[in-house]
Each structure stands twice: as C-alpha cells, then as structure tokens.
C-alpha cells in the first residue's frame, strides 16, 4: 500500500488582520501552519500505516519555506516528503495547482511505487476552494471521494475502499475501487502529536525537492500564472451593513420583553411568519 498525502502550508488565517487605515492584509508575522484539514488526511494515512502497514509520502507545492510543513508531517510519521518548488509554479490557481500536484503523484508512483490512495484536505484555509482535490483526481483518472468523515474499510487485497461522505442532510456510504482520491474532513480523526524521536528525526530530515526540470513531460503552458484561467481583479473589505440599532437597554426584564414584542409585532413579521 502506498499513500500520498497532499499538504499545503498556509498562513494561520486567525492571525491575519486588516489594516484599518489602508484596508490591506497584514500578513507580516503571521505564522505559517500546515493546512488544518490536510493533517486529518495525513493522520488517516498514518493510522492505516500503523494498523496494516503502508508507505506514506507527503507532497507539497510551495515556496522553499514550506519544507517546515513537510518536516512536521515527517515528525508525525510520514516516510518521505517531497517539496515541489519552482518560481515557475508561482501564481497558480486551482487548475494549475491540480495539474502540478497530479504530475507529482505520477512521478511519485514511477519512482517509489504505484499509488493506491491520495489524501487531500477538504479545503485550504487560504485558497479555501476544495477544488484542488477533485482536480487532481480527474487528472489522474482516479475515483474521487470528497468530504469523507469516516473510512469504514480499506481492503488492500480487493483494492476497494468504503467511506462515509458527509452531506448537508445525511451521510452517504460509498464504496469504490482504488486508486482513489479522498478529501478529508476534520471529523475523520484527531491528528496525533509527534513523538520526541519523531520530532528529532524530522528536524534532521531533508525533504526531496523537485523543480520544473525534474519533470520529464511538464507542459509549461499549464503551470503557474500562465496556466491559471482565473485572475483576481480586485479585493476589498466589505462595508458592514449600516443598521440603525434600536437599543432596548433599561428596565425590568418584563418591560424589555414587552417592548421587544411590541416592536416585532409592529413589523411584517407576524404576517410573513404566520404567527
């Protein structure tokens, strides 16, 4: 069994602020973290490795500094980490990203053995699209199982996999054939904390780095900015909706309540809601 986990290093969005004077993002000093959902994919791969034995390769397309994210994955127990890094990849949208990531999975399969399962996160905290996973699956012609909240069974002999997909109104139990690409939800598991030997091992580990030159058949028209059909035409900070708040601030609870009820009943609400 060979499992590939796709991870992305993202700025910790909780820490990103908007500069109120310039209306621009303050990214300075914002720590980079491994995309939260990707860690759930990794954990699932590692659990499978612990229980049945598997080789786990993590891949990430990003700047050289993303090797920190890969090292974190190695500290948790990944066997191998590959950083796909090249200026030419910069500015990629999901279409161009899924192209490079799929090419990487193909190359990983060639060099380190056929791939049975690819894990992606449900979505990234920065790109936030959830499109790269399906894109990679399509390009590799793998089956795709998105928004997986539970892996019920992986049958390494029959090469089948059964999962629970999370939908708005319920859970779908789906079975398919490997190779398969799964996008992971946080409900899937709780990512482990690396052991101390794991951390020490990772801090000495050097991820494999591939640039455009390492790929035999990369179509340069499909990577980076050039390969990205979408362009960001503008960004802005939304004006908060202007509302005249009526404060019902003082008085006994009963008085407040009757004032509110009177106010609500003076609107169209009772008719529209059939009260």
């Amino acid at each position: 069994m060979h499992i590939v986990v796709c991870v992305k290093q993202v700025p910790d969005s909780r820490e990103i602020r908007i500069d109120p004077n310039t209306n621009t993002l303050v990214r300075q000093g914002v720590p980079a973290i491994v995309n939260y959902y990707d860690l759930h994919g990794l954990e699932e791969a590692l659990r499978f490795k612990d229980e049945q034995g598997a080789e786990v390769t993590v891949i990430s397309m990003g700047p050289p500094s993303a090797d920190k994210a890969l090292k974190q994955c190695v500290s948790m127990g990944a066997d191998r980490a590959i950083l796909i890094s090249d200026r030419a990849f910069a500015g990629a949208d999901t279409l161009a990203t899924s192209y490079v990531v799929s090419k990487t999975v193909e190359k990983v399969a060639q060099e380190f053995g056929p791939v049975d399962v690819v894990f992606c996160g449900k979505q990234t905290l920065d790109g936030d699209t959830g499109q790269v996973g399906p894109g990679v699956a399509c390009r590799l012609d793998y089956e795709q199982l998105t928004y997986v909240e539970k892996v019920v069974e992986i049958n390494d002999q029959a090469k089948t996999i059964t999962v629970h997909r999370h939908l708005e109104d319920g859970v779908e139990v789906v079975k398919t054939k490997m190779p398969v690409l799964i996008t992971a939800l946080s409900e899937l598991n709780k990512p482990r904390r690396a052991s101390l030997p794991g951390v020490i091992n990772a801090s000495r580990y050097k991820p494999i780095v591939w640039t455009t030159n390492d790929f035999a058949d990369l179509d340069r028209a499909k990577i980076g900015l050039k390969g990205s059909p979408t362009i960001v035409s503008k960004t802005w900070v939304p004006e908060p909706r202007k509302i005249d708040t009526k404060m019902i601030a003082s008085g006994e609870a009963a008085a407040i309540a009757s004032e509110l009820v009177a106010a609500l009943w003076s609107t169209e609400l009772p008719t529209r809601l059939g009260w």
Binding site: L95, G130, P134, G135, Y147, E168, P229, T230
Partner: peptide, 23 residues
C-alpha cells in the same frame, strides 16, 4: 456550493478545462 455541488463543479472545470471560482 454544497458538498455535492463542489464535488461536481471541481471535476467539470478540470475536464473542460476552465476557471472555477468557489463559494
């Protein structure tokens, strides 16, 4: 942009191929 909608749109856009803006 439901679970199913995102699953499908991601696949279609890749095959066409074209740009897809999420959410």
């Amino acid at each position: 942009a439901t679970y199913t909608g995102r699953d499908l749109a991601g696949a279609i856009a890749t095959h066409l191929p074209t740009g897809l803006t999420a959410d």
